[in-house]
Design a protein around this nucleic acid. Structure first.
Lengths: 168, 168
DNA sequence: GCGGAAAATGTTATAACATTGCGTTTTGCC
DNA sequence: GGCAAAACGCAATGTTATAACATTTTCCGC
């Protein structure tokens, strides 16, 4: 499958691997980490799994609650934050800065910053890639003599299904 | 002055009102608020002033410190957060989500979300407007049936002068 | 000016998010 | 098996933000 490189590609929708199960997502993560010689330990894997199952940006303390509830584990904040740090370093998870929450990344095999559309109504988030925006940002940075590292793009609004469900 | 509408316009640089003093910035804010029937009270004005004087994204608690230091006031967090909320509602200030910090806006007269370039080295931030990026985001949102409200775009990197100052 | 409503601010406490420091356990490797 | 490095558990604490309620200030019609 080859996409024209100047088109945006939605990544949490029905295309891409949008229909993959959390288990499949985690399996991919396991493979990637093995290839990279990175250690996807039990806690780390569990947290990634929870994020995929959650389906929306999830806070660190919410993850702690869930872990404590489901397991026998006694996890503290540092454990979770360290795991999230690892997952972010591997490109498996991204932080939604405007919500202090974390989402799993649809394309961990490619290293890129994510672009998120977050529904204020249902809380769901969709990941998108739009190389045209990347390009413009890169150009703007270049024009200013600015050397770009990371970038955050987050759009807040109402998703299709919540718009549809709304009263006039 | 008429700018071609499809060009990005840097707003904390030497163009735009980049050479305005904090006092001039505050004066503009006073005018705008008067026009709008919004009350730019003492605390609110002071905080806006501090932000302009600071020259970099500044945290709420840092503002509290400074206010306590310079004045006789006994300001608590709620006071500052309420003031920031007001200033943001008026488009006078914007929050840098990736830093939990606040910056004054170069163009309070126009209502728009800001795009920031933040130097990881010196902490300075530059505001930019790029209608082309806005347009692409709007199109992407539209394609997904997503109704867009707010958006956050923050680029982290190294600014021109810090790049220049760096060892090879 | 005066009284009442609305807005803004002060005050205390607490919620929510994140990190430090240090000791213990697990893992990879020779 | 033994060692070093990495990961984890744990307690405390730091940082950012808000809730709830009392008090003060401002606006506005009279």
């Amino acid at each position: 499958m080859t996409l024209p490189s100047n088109q945006p590609s939605p990544c949490s929708e029905s295309c891409c691997r949008g229909d993959s199960t959390p288990a499949e997502r985690v399996a991919l993560a396991v493979t990637l980490c093995r290839e990279r010689g990175a250690r996807l330990t039990a806690v780390r894997r569990q947290i990634l799994e929870l994020l995929w199952e959650s389906g929306r940006p999830t806070g660190a303390y919410e993850l702690i609650e869930t872990l404590r509830g489901e397991g026998l584990r006694k996890v503290g904040p540092p454990t979770v934050y360290r795991a999230l740090e690892f997952l972010m370093a591997q490109g498996l998870v991204s932080k939604v800065q405007s919500r202090n929450a974390y989402v799993p990344c649809a394309h961990p095999e490619r290293r890129h910053d994510c672009l998120f559309f977050i529904c204020a109504d249902c809380g769901a988030s969709a990941e998108l890639e739009d190389p045209r925006i990347e390009q413009l940002l890169a150009n703007d940075a270049n024009d200013m003599g600015f050397r770009m590292n990371r970038r955050v793009i987050e759009v807040e609004g109402t998703c299709r299904s919540c718009v549809a469900a709304q009263p006039i």
